[in-house]
Computed example of a mutant assay.
Amino acid sequence: MSNDSKEKQDKDNLTAKKKKFRYTLFSTILVLILFAALVGAWFYYQSDMGTLLAIKEPSDISILGPDGTEMSSIDLNYTEDEKTGDQVTVKRVFCVQTSADKHRLEIAHTTNLKGLTFNIYKVSDNGTETVTDEGHTYKYDKTAIAGSYLNLNPDKTRPDYKYADDTYHDKNYERNDQVQIHAEPVYWLASQSLDTNKTNSIKNGTMYRTYYVCEVSWTETETEKETDIFYILAKIVE
């Protein structure tokens, strides 16, 4: 092979490698942008809908786990004790930490799980039910906090599943975005504001923790194992 031919081949190989690198880099950036856009879109709709915001420090209100531990989302992993037949029921404790007199709750979740339902109960010293979470035991009354979905589409063909309607799609995503049907989040809002438990004070009496039990149920079979994202949000009520 002549020197000129070898030099030309080396240049061609280098050009091909550069093109491949640019394509790989572009693909990686595109995936990261799409991922960030989808995550960021989840709660964007609230800005002009009068519903609730994700709470981030430094705020005068936050969502915490049992005994005030950090919690980013509800863990739906379960043990065999939490499953009867194909019915799974998990109970998770969370608290709202705030100095305000009242607050309001909202749930946002995807809809992959069959028969997904949930209830939220307020923890009370006089409660007749008990739950242990992360080594801490709480009493609660089994009277669920009233609320309703803001964008639920009653699908008659598959009534065991929840689906979001188009109410907030253009607020969550671009108008023409094609989103997998179960990835479109549904939003549930408590009907009334809730009283902060002023008897459970921390930080020298400047903040208070109000505890709740979130009970989530769904149907799971050996051939259907799905995962959902399940968020709890809170906002101060003036």
Rank of each mutant, 00 (worst) to 15 (best):
M1C: 12
N3D: 06
D4S: 14
K6D: 02
Q9K: 15
D10A: 15
T15Y: 09
A16Y: 07
A16F: 11
A16I: 10
R22S: 07
Y23R: 15
F26L: 13
T28M: 13
V31P: 02
A37V: 11
G40Y: 09
G40E: 00
Y44L: 15
Q46P: 07
Q46H: 14
S47Y: 13
G50S: 11
L52V: 10
L52H: 06
I55E: 02
E57D: 05
P58Y: 07
S59Q: 03
D60V: 06
D60S: 14
L64S: 08
G68E: 00
T69S: 11
E70H: 09
L76I: 11
N77Q: 07
T79G: 08
E80F: 12
D81K: 14
E82A: 15
D86P: 06
D86Q: 08
V88H: 01
V88L: 01
R92S: 06
R92Q: 04
V93I: 11
Q97D: 01
T98S: 14
S99N: 15
D101R: 14
D101T: 10
R104W: 03
R104I: 12
E106H: 00
T110Y: 07
G115W: 01
L116C: 12
F118S: 07
K122T: 08
G127F: 11
E129R: 15
V131A: 01
H136M: 11
T143H: 07
A144I: 05
I145H: 05
A146R: 12
L150W: 05
L152M: 09
D155I: 04
P159W: 01
D165A: 06
H169W: 04
K171F: 12
Y173E: 00
N176Y: 10
N176V: 09
Q180W: 13
I181V: 12
I181C: 02
E184G: 01
L189Q: 07
S193D: 05
L194T: 02
D195W: 04
D195T: 03
T196L: 09
S201W: 02
G205L: 12
M207W: 10
Y211S: 04
Y212G: 05
V213P: 09
V213Q: 01
C214Q: 00
I229F: 15
Y231V: 04
I232F: 07
V237M: 15
V237K: 13
E238T: 09
